[in-house]
Simulated assay, not measured.
Amino acid sequence: MKSLSNFSKSIKIPSNSPIDDIIGGGIEKGIITQIYGPPTSGKTNISLQLAVNSAEMGKKVIYIDTEGGISIDRIRQIAKNDFDSFASNFIIFEPLSFSSQHKDLKIVDNWLKTNSDDVDLVIIDSIIALYRIVDNSKEVNQDLGKQMGLLSKISKKYNLAVLITNQIYSSFDVDGTNNSVVPAGGITLQYWSKNIIELSKTEIIGERIAKVIRHRIIPEGVNIKFQITSNGIE
């Protein structure tokens, strides 16, 4: 049980980038935030930026890398001279299968029972990568739902921010026209993600657009341009 005053004390984790302007100052604790977009649209860069910011504030970050793409050099680049002072705050998992991804989440849940005060952020980059390389069966879909349910429980029980990145595919009408970009994972990811941000590229090299698809207080469609640079997201 909580009083209303408890909800007003929720701290957001900033990305220290223009993206904060369209998500109320940062990603919220206590819920799942989803960021989706095409390859090289900035999903991992935003994830690393948020992870560095949280680690710099003295909090541990649980980073589940399902694509083998986490770059220590990129983290050093974003953190500049501060890397060595907080490198121990990164806890990294690298599951090789969708089932081991689920097992890692259970390990995280169990570990948080005694260490939650030290952690502010859990990231899965990406939630769907290992799911997409296995048979898209009913059992696998149910497992995805269980993983999202567990992440939701973790975010609420321990008052953590949970960030998942997601991939996309193109959806076409029956006649093959009017294709649109659709996040993978279907209704399962849509249901559990309370805040959703779509990333896209522009014709300008390095420039991206972040657009609000769902947010608890920000209107749908609000967007902002940003660039990926050697310093991170600007």
Rank of each mutant, 00 (worst) to 15 (best):
P183A: 15
P183N: 05
P183F: 09
P183V: 02
A184V: 11
A184R: 03
A184C: 10
A184Q: 05
G185V: 01
G185Y: 00
G185T: 04
G186E: 06
G186H: 11
G186D: 01
G186C: 00
G186Y: 04
I187G: 10
I187A: 14
I187Q: 14
I187D: 13
I187M: 11
T188P: 04
T188S: 10
L189F: 05
L189C: 12
L189E: 06
L189I: 13
Q190A: 15
Q190T: 14
Q190M: 09
Q190K: 14
Q190L: 09
Y191N: 06
W192V: 07
W192L: 01
W192F: 12
S193W: 01
S193I: 01
K194M: 14
K194N: 14
K194S: 15
K194I: 13
K194Q: 15
K194V: 12
N195K: 06
N195V: 14
I196W: 00
I196N: 03
I197E: 01
I197M: 02
I197V: 13
I197Q: 08
E198C: 05
E198D: 10
E198K: 14
L199S: 03
L199M: 11
L199T: 10
L199K: 05
L199C: 03
L199R: 08
S200C: 01
S200K: 12
K201S: 11
K201Q: 09
T202Q: 07
T202C: 06
E203L: 11
E203D: 13
E203A: 07
I204R: 10
I204S: 09
I204N: 09
I204P: 00
I204L: 10
I205D: 12
I205Q: 11
G206E: 07
G206T: 04
G206H: 04
G206R: 05
G206K: 05
G206W: 09
E207M: 06
R208P: 01
R208L: 00
R208M: 02
R208V: 05
R208K: 08
I209P: 08
I209D: 02
K211T: 15
K211I: 05
K211Q: 15
K211D: 02
K211M: 13
V212A: 04
V212D: 06
V212W: 03
I213F: 07
I213M: 15
R214A: 15
R214M: 00
R214V: 13
H215V: 01
R216I: 03
I217E: 14
I217R: 11
I218H: 00
I218E: 04
I218P: 03
I218V: 15
P219T: 03
P219E: 10
P219R: 09
P219K: 15
